[in-house]
Nucleic acid binder design. Sequence first.
DNA 1: TCCCTTATTAGGCAACAAGCGAATTATATC
DNA 2: GATATAATTCGCTTGTTGCCTAATAAGGGA
Lengths: 96, 96
Amino acid sequence: MNLVYEALAHPTRRQIIALLRQGDRPAGEIATHFDIAKPTLSGHLRVLREAGLVIGERHGTSIVYSLQLSLLEESLAALLDLFKIDSAKPPEPDRS
Amino acid sequence: MNLVYEALAHPTRRQIIALLRQGDRPAGEIATHFDIAKPTLSGHLRVLREAGLVIGERHGTSIVYSLQLSLLEESLAALLDLFKIDSAKPPEPDRS
DNA sequence: TCCCTTATTAGGCAACAAGCGAATTATATC
DNA sequence: GATATAATTCGCTTGTTGCCTAATAAGGGA
């Protein structure tokens, strides 16, 4: 789970996620949306992949990336759990 | 908002949040839960403070930390927006 | 005021992350 | 096999993060 948080920590990677929300895309097409070198973007994609947030499937010479929504939901659930905004009572046991 | 994600990227800082969910605590008491030097923990608290996730109020010689739930909720909303799990249709326009 | 407690800031170092250009791998086509 | 295209890995530089010890600031009580 730690990998997910680290992956989300970089603005470019969050933008990649937002981009993939609109549909799957090959790495090269993703790259056109950013002003960074291709190897740098490839590194970001690797981080997202290792966190399990995206998967890349080879189609011919391209590698098409798509979101792993299941893990995204899990991450959100974990975050909700961390903050416990969802659950029953407000977190105030005693505190004099 | 970037600061929030960066703040959440470190396990210790997430544990601090989880701890504060159970009630406000002075910095020193927080420190007893971790096996790190006090200045290091103070640094983590600074990161959380600058992200707006916690606030520290001086009570005598202590500085009592508490969560800023409002910003936590905003962060969650932003995350939901990023993933759009909440909204209407699944993000699959075409894809042959 | 002087001392003790609590917490932060300052300084320094090792480890990591982000970026790039060049080289490499993988697939498709001729 | 040779060539072209797409994406990654490699080697490197630069800047940041995380950790520590030592020093400093802020308060409370004798």
